[in-house]
Every structure is written in C-alpha cells, then in structure tokens.
C-alpha cells in the first residue's frame, strides 16, 4: 500500500515536470520572433494584413496568453504536438517514426556501458596494480576530455575507411533481405560504432565510480568477517561486496539519461543514424519550431521515464531505499 502511494506520488510529480516542460516550450515559442502565421504566410509566398489576422484567428493566436497555453497543453494531452510545415506531417507522426532508432541506440549504449563499466570497476578494484586499473584511469581522462563527435569521427576513419569493417553510416542497408533475422544482424552491424562512441563517455564514468565504490566496500568490517568465515574471493566479491557497491553506480546511471540523449544528438549526426537527434538538427536548421519543441518534450519524457525506471531498479537492488519509502 505504502509502495503504491510512493509510485503514485512519483508519477504525479513526473506529470508536473512534463507540464512544466510544456509551459516552457510554449513560452519560448511566444518569446521567439515570428509565429505560426508568419510561417504559413512565408510558405504561401506572403500575405496581407487581413489574411494574417484571419490565420491568427483560425489558430487561436488572437486569444490571451493563458487561454492559448491551456489550449496547447490540452492538445498535447491528446497527442497532438502541432503540424510541421517543413515535413508536411503531424509532429507526433514524425517523432514516432524516429523515436525507436534513438531508443535503440541510447538504451544499448547505456546498458553496455553499465555492464562493462561494472565489470571493469570490480576487476580493477580487485587488482589495484593490474593493467585494468590503469585502463580505468586513462579511460576516465579520455572519456571526459574527448569531444564525443570527434571520437566518433576517429572511429569512422579507422574502422570504416582505413579498415572497412563497419558501414560508414545509416541504420540498415536497402539491399538487405526482407526477413527479421537478416535485418537484425544488419542493424547490429550498423550499430557497433555509434554504440561504442556513445557508450565510451559513460563507460568512463561508471567504471571509475564502481572502482571507488568497490574499494570502499572491500575495506569494511563485514568483508573481513566474510573472509574470516573462509568464503572464497569470488563469493565475497560477487555476493557480498558488489551488492553494496552497485547502488551508487545505478543512481549515477539514472542521472545520465539527459546526458545520453545530448550525446545521441551528436553521435546520430556523425553516423547519420536516423533518430530524433538528426530530426532535431534538421528541423532546427529549417526553423521548424513545432517539431523542435515536440522533440524537446519527448526527450524530457524519455528522461522522466528513465528516472522512474531507475527508481524501481534501485528499489529492487537496495533494501535501504525500500525502507525509506
């Protein structure tokens, strides 16, 4: 019952955050020079004042700010994010076409970075003088300082152009056979470089935190007790230490969703990955405001859902969080 209440509370708060995003979106749309009527007039090749007034009345632009805002939020709740004059399509349709590609890239990169990061962190904490330890330190420096789009281009030069192991860009070949397995393999092949590029930043973060967290846990009394009981090194590391070292890493990973999406915009541009990031860039260059703001809203939605899921995972792996409710 208490759990249900907490979940409901979280959901209500998430909904409030998203409405705040909508208010921000709408205010920016109003503050920016030019409005929908200007865009339509421009696409018609100009219009006189009377026609402009007519368009404004038709789109409710002559209403007071708050009424317009309420209308906007109401429309978004029915999944209507407006119409893109650049693509001649409803914004929601555009976004739903591109969202899966971005989610595939972002989730794979996050999961891989998390798994490899934890493995690296555990291994380097167990062997403080080993090569893994230096690797983690180097990776941490590189992951912070290298611009992600540059890392991507370097990988592209090395593994697509000099040694042609992977495709230069895109998500799937047009020539691929029309069956599920062949398609999956082809997409996976296209995904390797983008995922490595995007994952590398977060791999650096997670492996370093996991190492620090493991070192701290391995120094505590109950680990000494476990050793004294005669448990094997493997049992101690995996069952006793990792269980307590993991929650901080998961918390950090949960905080990275918005950074992952930011990174995805750059990575998608480098590898021509047909996702939301690419759509965002083209619509920004084309000044297609409804699409831009729709993407901003949907990426905030992804972050909020990501945070909720992280909360659930933390609850599952850390009894202390459950106690706090």
């Amino acid at each position: 019952m208490a759990l249900l209440m907490t979940i409901l509370q979280r959901l209500a708060y998430a909904a409030l955050l998203l409405i705040a995003v909508l208010v921000l979106n709408f205010s920016m749309m109003n503050l920016a020079p030019g409005d929908v009527a200007d865009t339509i007039a421009a696409s018609m090749g100009g219009a006189d004042a009377e026609v402009m007034a007519q368009i404004r009345a038709e789109y409710g632009l002559d209403q007071p700010f708050l009424v317009q805002l309420a209308n906007y939020i109401g429309r978004v709740l029915t999944f209507d994010l407006g119409y893109s004059y650049f693509y001649n399509q409803p914004v929601t349709k555009l976004i739903f076409e591109r969202l899966p590609a971005t989610l595939l890239l972002v989730i794979t990169a996050q999961l891989l970075a998390l798994i490899v990061g934890v493995l690296l962190g555990v291994f380097s904490a167990r062997h403080p003088n080993g090569i893994a330890n230096y690797f983690v330190t180097l990776l941490a420096l590189f992951g912070y300082a290298a611009p992600v789009f540059w890392t991507g281009i370097l990988l592209l030069i090395a593994f697509s152009l000099k040694i042609p192991l992977f495709p230069v860009g895109g998500m799937i070949d047009v020539t691929v056979e029309d069956n599920f397995f062949a398609k999956a393999v082809d997409i996976a092949h296209h995904m390797v470089l983008p995922v490595i590029t995007l994952g590398s930043i977060f791999l650096a973060l997670y492996s370093r935190l996991c190492r620090a967290s493991m070192l701290e846990v391995l120094g505590s009394d109950y680990i000494r007790t476990a050793k004294a009981k005669g448990l094997t090194q493997r049992e101690i590391t995996l069952k006793h230490a990792l269980k307590n070292a993991l929650p901080p890493v998961v918390t950090l990973a949960g905080l990275q969703f918005s950074a992952v999406i930011s990174g995805a915009v750059l990575v998608e541009t480098v590898f021509s990955w047909p996702g939301l990031g690419q759509l965002a860039l083209t619509s920004i260059l084309a000044r297609d405001t409804p699409t831009i703001l729709g993407i901003l809203f949907f990426s905030a939605l992804v972050v909020v859902v990501g945070n909720l899921l992280t909360d659930m995972v933390l609850r599952a792996i850390d009894p202390r969080v459950r106690g706090r409710a």
Partner: peptide, 15 residues
C-alpha cells in the same frame, strides 16, 4: 535537469 542539455541549448540558439 530533465531537459537534455545539448538539445535545450540547441533550441535556445535556434530560436
């Protein structure tokens, strides 16, 4: 913190 930083700044710069 909910808004992806790069995307948000892209929007500001674009508008």
């Amino acid at each position: 913190q909910v808004l992806p930083t790069l995307l948000f700044s892209m929007v500001i710069v674009a508008l």
